[in-house]
């Protein structure tokens, strides 16, 4: 059995995925998606000098990378404590659910674990779960925050 954990800042979903992987002896992969949609999200704003826009976009990217690092460290700690092997993958996408679905398609997973509401990048504004459910062809476990 192969499990994919879609990462955001929820530690409950990490624990839940690790527990499932442990109980079922499954192979666990975790996917962290960097949101590259900031340029589009702020795209209508014409008043800024482009330099100010660029500075913000750099700032948002640095924040994304910092979150990736922090989340990876958090997951590693918890995986070690739970005694489960976990492979961490990173992807970048304009919309986070798209990257999750792409990974599901190529990875041959049996189960997707993600938190709900899913808070990764700009998905704080959107309903990631609905989007993922629409496209996913495996079981999906939504973990409440």
């Amino acid at each position: 059995m192969r499990i994919l954990l879609a990462l955001d800042d929820s530690t409950r979903s990490m624990d839940e995925a690790l527990r499932l992987a442990h109980d079922r002896g499954a192979e666990l992969s975790a996917l962290f998606v960097l949101d590259t949609g900031w340029s589009v999200y702020t795209g209508h704003d014409f008043l800024l000098g482009s330099h100010a826009r660029g500075t913000f976009l750099d700032y948002a990217r640095d924040d994304e990378l910092a979150q990736e690092k922090a989340t990876a460290a958090e997951l590693q700690n918890r995986a070690q404590a739970a005694g489960v092997d976990c492979q961490l993958k990173t992807a970048a996408a304009g919309r986070v659910p798209e990257a999750i679905l792409a990974e599901l398609k190529t990875g041959g997973y049996d189960l997707l674990v993600m938190s709900h509401p899913f808070r990764r990048g700009l998905e704080v504004m959107r309903d990631a779960a609905t989007q993922v459910l629409k496209g996913a062809d495996c079981d999906v476990l939504l973990v409440k925050r």
Partner: peptide, 26 residues
């Protein structure tokens, strides 16, 4: 001042979380 533009211009300087900034923009 300028709504979205000012949000974007200010947030790096005051270290605001981009996710919060997104909500402010909305």
């Amino acid at each position: 001042v300028c709504g979205v533009s000012a949000c974007i211009a200010t947030s790096p300087a005051v270290r605001a979380k981009p996710a919060d900034v997104a909500l402010a923009i909305a």
